[in-house]
């Protein structure tokens, strides 16, 4: 039946805006709501960061005093150093682990689907659960160290969780466990999109597997690598729940991260203005990562449109 043909003359067309109402509702309402939350609360936080607010928001202008106070505090300095260490170690190791897993999975092995699901599964677990589980595993009295002791190797020592210098690495380990599957999935998609003819051509040219990966396949993955690094970096910068559940910033303040500092200032010490300043500093760090990425994407797209 050709409904369209028989109905068109009989029924007047709906007004344009009525016909497109579902579109407007699904696009604009969520967009406006999230924009209102994101933009208005960001602006509000920026404003608060220049006020002398403590327990409750108050009007007033203190200039950059909150910022100087935050950046001068030992808490923030440790958090910032930790972020540099955690961010770079986590991003590099997670990308490397993901890439190795992807390359191994790409060898046409049996049970690939099962393995892929297993590696991706941690992503479905909340960071609080990851942090809690790893806090048990890494607890010398409960987890791995106890297991090895019980097996008879009593001199074995694995107490990074309570070691001031090594505790930050426990967060790195847990974060890699959680997110290397995500990197793997992206890299695997990239590996699968390499034209099989290119690999055949390399075979005829006489390139062994190492040279084929190093010279041909891996260079074609670098746009994906950038995406992985940026997504992981932004996760690293905003890490909160994982640390809160795993070490809660301890021992002492050895594993303090910026998000924990913000939480500490705002809700435990009731220094709203300083907390807001720390939050704005975090936002600036994020922008330092995201703006170059956005520019890079823009250039890539421009170049793609020309090619």
């Amino acid at each position: 039946m050709s409904n369209a043909a028989t109905m068109r003359p009989g029924r007047p067309a709906l007004p344009e805006w009525v016909r497109r109402l579902p579109e407007y509702l699904t696009i604009w309402v969520p967009l406006l709501l999230s924009a209102a939350h994101l933009v208005s609360f960001s602006l509000w936080t920026i404003w608060i960061s220049f006020t002398p607010s403590t327990l409750v928001p108050v009007a007033g202008w203190v200039g950059l005093r909150n910022y100087t106070a935050v950046t001068a505090s030992r808490n923030w300095q440790i958090a910032f150093d930790n972020l540099l260490l955690f961010g770079s170690a986590f991003v590099l190791l997670s990308a490397a682990t993901g890439l190795i897993l992807a390359i191994l999975l790409d060898q046409r092995i049996r049970g690939e689907n099962v393995l892929r699901s297993i590696f991706l599964y941690p992503l479905a677990v909340s960071f609080v659960v990851t942090g809690t589980v790893w806090s048990w595993l890494l607890n010398p009295g409960l987890g791995i160290q106890k297991l090895v002791h019980d097996l008879g190797w009593t001199s074995f020592k694995f107490d990074w969780l309570i070691d001031r210098d090594m505790a930050i690495w426990t967060i790195v380990i847990a974060a890699i466990w959680q997110s290397c599957g995500f990197a793997m999935a992206l890299f695997l998609a990239g590996l699968r999109s390499v034209d099989p003819d290119i690999i055949k051509a390399a075979q005829i040219d006489g390139a062994g597997p190492v040279r084929t990966y190093r010279r041909i396949i891996l260079p074609s993955l670098w746009p994906i690598t950038v995406t992985v690094v940026v997504i992981q970096l932004q996760f690293a910068i905003s890490t909160f729940d994982l640390v809160r559940a795993l070490t809660n910033g301890g021992p002492g303040i050895a594993t303090q991260l910026p998000a924990l500092v913000v939480y500490d200032l705002m809700f435990q010490r009731s220094l709203l203005g300083r907390g807001a300043a720390a939050a704005v500093l975090m936002l600036l760090i994020l922008l330092a990562v995201l703006l170059p990425y956005a520019a890079w994407r823009y250039i890539q797209r421009r170049r793609g449109a020309h090619a």
């Binding site: 034209d195 003819d197 290119i198 055949k200 051509a201 390399a202 075979q203 005829i204 040219d205 006489g206 010279r215 041909i216 260079p219 074609s220």
Partner: peptide, 21 residues
């Protein structure tokens, strides 16, 4: 004999040029 030692050269439908070179 491995492809590289067969003294052949091949041209592919998709050209199969190495994109990063």
């Amino acid at each position: 004999v491995a492809p590289k030692d067969r003294d052949i050269a091949m041209v592919f439908q998709s050209y199969a040029l190495y994109p990063s070179m």
